[in-house]
Write a protein that binds this DNA or RNA. Structure first.
Lengths: 168, 168
DNA sequence: ATCGAATATGTTATATTATCACAACTTTGT
DNA sequence: ACAAAGTTGTGATAATATAACATATTCGAT
């Protein structure tokens, strides 16, 4: 059992998640039009499923949730949609979890700090310019040419550590 | 085919890799003694195999290389050894590659910047204190409690980008 | 409107990565 | 010598991801 359903409940209470979803989908549609790429029904559906929460979600979980809506869905169906969404910067792949999360900064610079809570599995995305600047200069010093700069931090988020305090 | 064998050749030319290996193994043995944990023959052998190069190596590659030396070797044999070596901070797991690399800073603080070359697959480890400091304060600002702070950067290393220049 | 190219999807099979469960063996402390 | 803890052997299987090829759809040029 995961503690996440209850933990994410208060998170949802704190913000209007329907706005998160509609903002993300609007941005996605606009970006795809501008770029001349197809946000097909499958891709849109997968994006919606990912945005159902702020928790990282696994490919086969998405497949299970997609099947009722699309009976022919197979692993490739999901992985292709995920590949597209990642290419377009609409979602992040969390390497350390083999999981996926909607991106809050689609269309902007796409190098963020991901704070991944072990307790509620929610992921907070921060642009963290100070960190990214320090990182860039460290990389330059090494003579390295970076193609991607994702940072994944695992730990306990503010909400969950407060809860633990209260209970402890 | 991988371009790595030739690329890593000049890397090896640049340093005495037998020293890398013996230093790593010495440190490992000492740390395990101090900590009262067992660096068994299997674990030591896997550590040696990982240290054969500065390239990230996959679990099943290790298994293939281990089998000639240990015919009973199975996936669990390798994964158990890897789990142990990671727990003891003797190797890093590179999440974005599902691969493993020897740690240069075993026994010291264990949060580093990993620069992973797409060309030669070598991994450079840097302690990058400026980045880590900026990261810590960003994490603090978020009210997050970090348990791990690994940063994996993919790109082209200094050596390989010079080679490309020369050839291009 | 229709043709061809490019793109997207359907479908089956399989590759890759990782863990579980339980028995047997080894090491350590008493 | 014995028990407890730790390690390894072994077989099965779970979880994650891709390959290959056929079919269908979309889009632009004629």
């Amino acid at each position: 059992m995961r503690s996440s359903s209850s933990s994410s409940a208060h998170a949802s209470a704190k913000h209007d998640h329907t706005k998160c979803i509609s903002a993300a989908l609007d941005t996605a549609e606009q970006l795809c039009v501008v770029r001349g790429v197809q946000l097909t029904p499958i891709r849109l559906q997968v994006l919606k499923l990912i945005w159902e929460s702020h928790q990282a979600v696994k490919a086969y979980e998405l497949l299970d949730r997609l099947k009722p809506l699309k009976q022919e869905a197979k692993p490739a169906t999901v992985y292709r949609a995920l590949d597209f969404l990642i290419e377009q910067g609409l979602i992040h792949r969390i390497e350390s979890l083999n999981a996926f999360i909607g991106c809050h900064y689609s269309g902007q610079q796409h190098e963020q700090l991901l704070l991944i809570c072990k307790e509620c599995h929610e992921v907070e995305e921060r642009s963290a310019p100070a960190v990214m600047d320090a990182l860039s200069s460290e990389i330059d010093q090494a003579g390295f040419i970076a193609h991607s700069k994702a940072i994944e931090i695992h730990g306990i988020c503010a909400k969950c550590s407060k809860e633990t305090d209260a209970q402890g």
